[in-house]
Design a binder for these strands. Structure first.
Lengths: 179, 179
DNA sequence: GTCAGTGCAAATAATTTGCAGTCTT
DNA sequence: AAGACTGCAAATTATTTGCACTGAC
């Protein structure tokens, strides 16, 4: 893929403040990550730590591309394929989680605590929400036709604050134009 | 895309019996679909009805490609792009719904009743489950940062019966080989 | 008759893979 | 030293688009 960065130059990594995770928590997660790599016999490479840390720092549930965009600034030799491979591997290992948006793009989350996602159906933005009381289903649980439920994934789909405001403004503009 | 059908010849549409919706229900849905098209000023074309009906008949939450595969047998002139366009349009109109799997592939559902999905993380299969008591959140609901929740989407992720059985068999084979 | 909808082919987007090196263990 | 991992480029897979034509209204 010819990606946005190579095409248009480096895009500044512009995480909003409230979407950056706190330093100490990130440090704790990274330490646990190293430990987990060693335990499982995964090699603890510079790239793996970098990808994991970028994900841990960013609570906006970034795509592979935006993880790459952030890291490429520092690690100029980093390859897109490596980021994909690392994300896939870490997901297989259960060290990170994949979150699906309305569109088909894959996004990732380093937060393994049980929690829910608000998904904006306009901008595809994802934000976390602490455990809802809804999520109480004793797991693992046996469903119909031999289905073994391991996880209850709750997504709250709607429209985020900024899209709602933007739409209100547009609506206003349109009604002005009509009059 | 050079798709499976063009590459390997026609794949038989092999919906399992329990994944086919009952005739009368399908007929009712199609009738309502026609009515909805007319109400909204969407042209009621052969292709649209065919795509909608194929989706209504098939409770396996097919991808665009498998809808195309089924229809291509009868409508030899049908184009892949048309199927994509129709599915997208119907989703925009809220006449069908999009379901996301663990992988990024889009799948669709003609069932608009509130219900949950069991998603198999091994084969990506999706099956319906009638409304869980969990889904009781009064909507629309105002969340944090101005988020307006419109829908609560609950996916029960786990392993389906046939994958579990297949895995058990493999496990058995492996332990035999080891001994 | 009009124009939304379709078919075809080509373009774009997203992800994966083959292979030749490189770096962790 | 062994082989898991990376970088690069090319391949694959999934989806979208441009344009000329056709059929629903």
């Amino acid at each position: 893929m010819v990606n946005a960065i190579d095409k248009h130059g480096i895009r500044p990594p512009q995480a909003k403040r409230h979407l950056q995770r706190n330093r100490q928590e990130v440090a704790r997660w990274c330490a646990r990550f190293e430990e987990q790599c060693r335990t499982r016999g995964l090699r603890f490479t510079t790239q793996r730590l970098a990808v994991y840390r970028a994900l841990a720092q960013d609570a906006s549930h970034p795509t592979a591309e935006s993880v790459y965009a952030r890291l490429k600034l520092q690690m100029t030799s980093l390859s897109f394929a490596t980021v994909y491979r690392i994300l896939e591997r870490l997901e297989d290992e259960g060290l990170i989680r994949r979150v699906s948006t309305a569109k088909g793009v894959r996004r990732f989350d380093a937060n393994l605590e049980p929690h829910q996602h608000f998904v904006c159906r306009l901008c595809n933005g994802i934000t976390d929400h602490a455990e809802l009381p809804h999520a109480q289903l004793p797991l693992p649980w046996r469903g119909p036709r031999g289905f073994t439920a391991e996880e209850l994934e709750i997504r709250i789909v709607g429209i985020c604050g900024s899209c709602r405001r933007a739409r209100a403004k547009r609506g206003l503009a349109r009604s002005r134009a009509a009059s």
